[in-house]
Amino acid sequence: MKGIVFTEFLELVGRNYGVEMMDFIIEASDLPSGGAYTAVGSYDHGEMITLVQNLSTATRVPVPELLRAYGQHLFARFSVRYPRFFDGITSCFEFLDRIEGHIHVEVRKLYPDAELPSIDIDWRTEDRIELFYSSTRPFAAFAEGLMRGAIAHFGEAIEVRQLDAAADGTFIRFELTRS
């Protein structure tokens, strides 16, 4: 995983739970990287899993809830850090339509070694969209958080319904409906 995912996570932990908690989960995690991340570096996704699990244990907040909250946070940060990915896009559905064919293409140009998940649109109408997230990593709840971050970013009233999911968090199917 790209280091920006780690640096932003630790920033969120520090802001929401304090620097002491951030230090605690890094020390408790016994990470190969030692918890020293750079935004452009690449790190094993297992380190993120360990960090989130240790934060969950310390805060008693379930892992999926932490991952969803982090996904929402990260989407907001991406909109600030990478404004060109949002140029000309006026809705959440329009943004979701562009992930595979445009945004992931651009991300691969910036980070050729990035291992990105797949976001496939199964069908779409003016007011409904069904999408399928799949990855080799167990971050379906994180993907849901990113999607909810997109909804918040575009200020839309959209209901999110989970249709199907793998117990291991490697895939999930959503239906989004404008209300």
Rank of each mutant, 00 (worst) to 15 (best):
R84S: 14
D30K: 15
V80I: 14
F86S: 03
T90C: 13
D97M: 11
S179A: 15
R15A: 13
S33C: 08
D164S: 15
E100F: 05
L12P: 07
V13K: 01
Y82G: 08
S42I: 11
G149M: 00
S135K: 00
Q162P: 01
E106D: 11
G41W: 05
T136A: 13
Q53A: 14
G14I: 06
L116M: 05
G46Y: 07
R77H: 01
Y43F: 13
I25A: 11
S79C: 07
L31F: 02
F132I: 04
I89S: 10
D113L: 13
L31H: 09
R84E: 15
D120I: 12
F75L: 03
S91H: 09
A76K: 11
R148D: 02
F174A: 08
I26F: 09
H73A: 05
E27K: 14
V13E: 01
P112L: 06
R84Y: 12
H153Q: 09
R108G: 08
A39W: 09
G14Q: 04
E20Y: 07
F142N: 06
P117F: 00
L55C: 08
I129C: 10
F154M: 01
H153M: 11
I103H: 07
K109R: 15
R77S: 06
P138C: 09
P138R: 04
F95I: 04
M48G: 03
K2P: 03
Q162W: 07
E130H: 07
G46F: 05
L12Q: 05
P62H: 09
L96D: 00
T7I: 14
F95E: 10
T90D: 13
G145A: 01
R68L: 09
L51E: 01
F24D: 12
G35N: 09
M48Y: 12
G35T: 06
T50A: 15
A167F: 10
K109Q: 13
K2S: 07
I89D: 08
L163Y: 14
V5M: 06
S29M: 02
F95A: 09
G101D: 12
I26T: 10
S56G: 05
H45A: 13
S179Y: 12
V5G: 04
